[in-house]
Design a protein around this nucleic acid. Structure first.
Lengths: 343, 343
DNA sequence: TTGAAAGCGCTAACAT
DNA sequence: ATGTTAGCGCTTTCAA
């Protein structure tokens, strides 16, 4: 059913004024007499008048909404980031419209088309693991549509980007394993398309190189869906367990990969870190409660959301085309628990 | 910066047609010649024309957006529910606008006012733990605004509601503890304002009554913020530990309370279930990985989101005022792990 | 088959 | 100090 609300016209009619007078009175214009203002304000309050944001949007050619595309809301990193996004957006008077790509390229494109037309003023996106073709994003960007990438960014499109020190985070995690005596360290990562995968692998490789180690190809396993399906993690772990010599540690580059890996190892009764150590990226706030408590690389998700939103609003509210784009780099922290301790 | 897109007017001008002809051609009206249609469609595709959803909204008096208010996105139950909401909404062509109340009444009211005007066609809400006064909701509802409550509902407002068998879930969890030999079972719950708290406590009390037990007042602890702050859980647990005889088990009625309680007990080196058993509501998908693996009451969060959205869209799209409201009751499941096992 | 015009709710330039 | 009018992009009635 339709929900009819009061308009400026209703007020004007009731008070025998013109709509423009009412409009001005409501906006406290100086060219309206105090008397009239009072009258209008009082009546408006009485009938609980609310300006229609859609009419405003049409007039101002802006919706005061921003779109967010992430792979999955039910992922601690993203839900924390959205939390940050929402807090800044709300503070600045913007709505947040959320969509999920579920790591599917098609869904990402579809969602983007859906959101982009003109119902959002700008977009925050962390691309799906399946995203190789960038046409959907580039087309928008080329037409001047404000876009900010966060976390899973795209290098080829010039706009603001918010990332973490992926290389450093991975390096630190791997180094932690090395310092604890592990030498045959495997890596389970998401799709190679992703900037974050490539950088994290690079950090892992570099740490090993520091100890004059070079991982064989068989030590690096890819999960195209980023661990969304446990089966892919199961397969990766299974292959690693068959290697001889068997890896003595695993480094995982994403939330779902880390918990998925823990799940698989425990199901197979592999003792952690006794048989195999495990260190990975995760933003779950339950890691200390796990068995064993996990050593993880933690990303400042909330802050990333805040920063990305702030940059996006800068783009949206800028009077002139922005040419200088920023790349904000936030730091990770290694939270040490038991899963990566000395063997 | 502004992002200018093509309009029907541009097409009309370029093709020497009127805007109404273009409009009709785009909507494949039968009163337009095939020739003209082809021409228009071709040109529209060429300049990548997209109808302006805001103009449509103004015309149709609907925004094809629904609002969602939850306490916190970064809570497994809510993020899963939102996932369900988003899936149904998108399928039916609606945007989802998300806001968080962070268990604050003021934020809930503020957000509601912000969303309600006319930028959303309806609202899905799970009220905050602090919500006692219902005026903000009632005012909207009385004006015919479509609202559906889910999980944390409000009995006094007549509309569709989606709940789970709170009583049953709590009863089952408590009974599980009883069957495992625990007799002195405490309960940690959220604000008593909440329907779910009251019902879950009732289920807990009834299960005890079944064994001719009656919990003393001191065994039931309230956390007004629903466990959002660990301190309140710490205090509750602390008080319970001081009781003589000391409780041999704890039943928690919410996600944050369950994991918070586990955190506190572990910090105090209380062995679970050796010293104290723990069973509670939780929708985390990591419970099996915890130490000890938690026995939990799981809610069908995704499904609740789906059902609630479906009901909301029914309200929104109904031609006439809806009088018959549904109360959909979904079932919980007890996932048995070790934390509630025999002592 | 096509076009002109009105209207959705609001603001603002331009009268009065 | 207040009113008239046009216009944001689109659909739709009415006219041609």
């Amino acid at each position: 059913m339709k929900f009819e609300a009061a308009t400026i016209k209703d007020i004007a009619k009731a008070l025998g004024l013109s709509t423009s007078t009412v409009s001005r009175a409501l906006r406290d214009s100086h060219e309206i007499s105090e008397e009239t203002k009072k009258l209008v304000l009082k009546y408006a309050a009485q009938i609980n008048y609310r300006p229609n944001p859609i009419a405003l949007s049409l007039k101002e050619k802006r919706s005061r909404s921003i779109g967010v595309i992430v792979t999955e809301i039910a992922n601690s990193f993203f839900s924390q980031a959205i939390n940050g996004i929402e807090s800044v957006a709300k503070e600045r008077g913007y709505n947040v419209i959320i969509s999920q790509s579920h790591e599917s390229f098609e869904k990402e494109v579809q969602t983007l088309n859906y959101l982009s037309s003109r119902s959002i003023d700008g977009l925050l996106i962390s691309v799906s693991a399946a995203t190789k073709d960038l046409e959907h994003l580039r087309a928008l960007h080329d037409r001047g549509f404000p876009i900010v990438f966060f976390d899973r960014i795209v290098e080829d499109i010039q706009t603001h980007k918010v990332v973490i020190e992926n290389f450093r985070g991975a390096y630190d995690a791997t180094m932690h394993l090395l310092q604890n005596g592990y030498r045959n360290i495997a890596c389970i990562t998401a799709s190679e398309n992703l900037s974050i995968s490539r950088e994290r692998i690079a950090g892992y490789v570099e740490a090993l190189a520091h100890k004059q180690l070079k991982p064989s190809k068989s030590l690096i396993k890819y999960c195209p869906n980023g661990g969304m399906e446990l089966a892919e993690v199961e397969q990766a772990v299974s292959q690693l367990l068959k290697l001889r010599p068997r890896p003595d540690a695993i480094f995982t580059t994403g939330d779902k990969l880390t918990t998925g890996c823990l799940r698989v190892l425990r199901a197979r009764n592999v003792s952690i870190p006794g048989d195999i150590a495990l260190v990975g990226f995760s933003n779950s706030d339950l890691i200390e409660l796990m068995n064993p408590p996990l050593t993880v690389v933690r990303q400042p998700a909330f802050e990333m959301g805040e920063v990305a939103t702030d940059l996006l609003l800068q783009l949206i509210e800028s009077k002139r085309p922005v040419k200088d784009f920023e790349r904000r780099i936030l730091t990770t922290s290694l939270i040490v628990n038991e899963s990566g301790n000395r063997k």
